Amino acid sequence: MRLLFDQNLSFKLCQMIGDLFPDSSHVGSHGLSEVPDRALWEFAKANGFAIVTQDVDLAELAGLLGSPPKVIWLRAGNQTTAMIADLLRRHAPTIQSFEGDDSTACLEIY
């Protein structure tokens, strides 16, 4: 699964979890840091990314539009980048299963 980290998350996550989720990227690498959520949605859809965010708006879009793209909504509050990387590592099997679940568009991780 290719992850696209939203602007509210550090670009460093791409490298920190690259062994589990290769080819992941950050919105800043694509000039998408300040675009509306719908533009980010369309980019992720067109390029085969799942969006990782702390933003409820993208989770709501997943509920309205379904997938693709899938949304991984991090509900852990403000945490350090290292703690977010650890959270994603601990939930890696769930995230990988989520990729193949056609009935679910949004995965909430606590």
Rank of each mutant, 00 (worst) to 15 (best):
F98K: 09
I17C: 11
A105I: 07
A82G: 10
I84F: 12
L64N: 10
E60H: 14
H26E: 02
F49G: 01
I95L: 10
T81W: 08
F43M: 03
Q7D: 15
D55I: 08
D19I: 04
S33M: 15
T53H: 04
A50K: 12
I17S: 07
Q15T: 15
Q7N: 15
D102T: 03
R38L: 07
H26N: 04
D37N: 01
V56H: 13
F11T: 12
F21I: 00
N78A: 07
C14T: 08
S103D: 14
K12T: 15
K45S: 08
A105L: 09
D86A: 12
Q96L: 14
C106A: 08
P68R: 10
L65N: 11
S103T: 10
D55M: 08
G31A: 06
N8M: 08
I84R: 11
T81I: 08
L20E: 05
I17V: 07
G18L: 00
N47P: 01
G77K: 02
F11N: 14
V35A: 11
A92Y: 13
S67K: 13
I95M: 12
A76I: 10
R38C: 02
V56T: 11
P69Q: 00
R38P: 05
L32C: 03
A85C: 03
A44W: 03
Q15C: 13
I17K: 04
K70C: 06
K45I: 04
A92F: 12
P36N: 00
Y110I: 14
D101Q: 10
S24F: 01
C14I: 04
A85N: 04
R75S: 04
S67P: 12
L3V: 02
V71S: 01
R75W: 11
G100T: 06
L64S: 12
P22V: 03
A62C: 08
D55F: 11
L13Q: 06
F98L: 10
E42C: 05
T94R: 14
I51G: 04
A46N: 12
G28M: 08
C14P: 06
I51K: 00
E34T: 14
H30V: 01
S103H: 11
L32M: 09
S103N: 11
G63M: 14
A62P: 05
L61T: 06
V56P: 13
P69V: 00
L40S: 01
D55P: 03
D86S: 10
L74D: 09
I17R: 06
L65W: 15
I109R: 15
K45G: 06
L87C: 07
W41I: 01
I72Y: 14
G28C: 05
L65R: 12
Y110A: 15
S103V: 05
Q79M: 04
P69D: 01
Q79F: 05
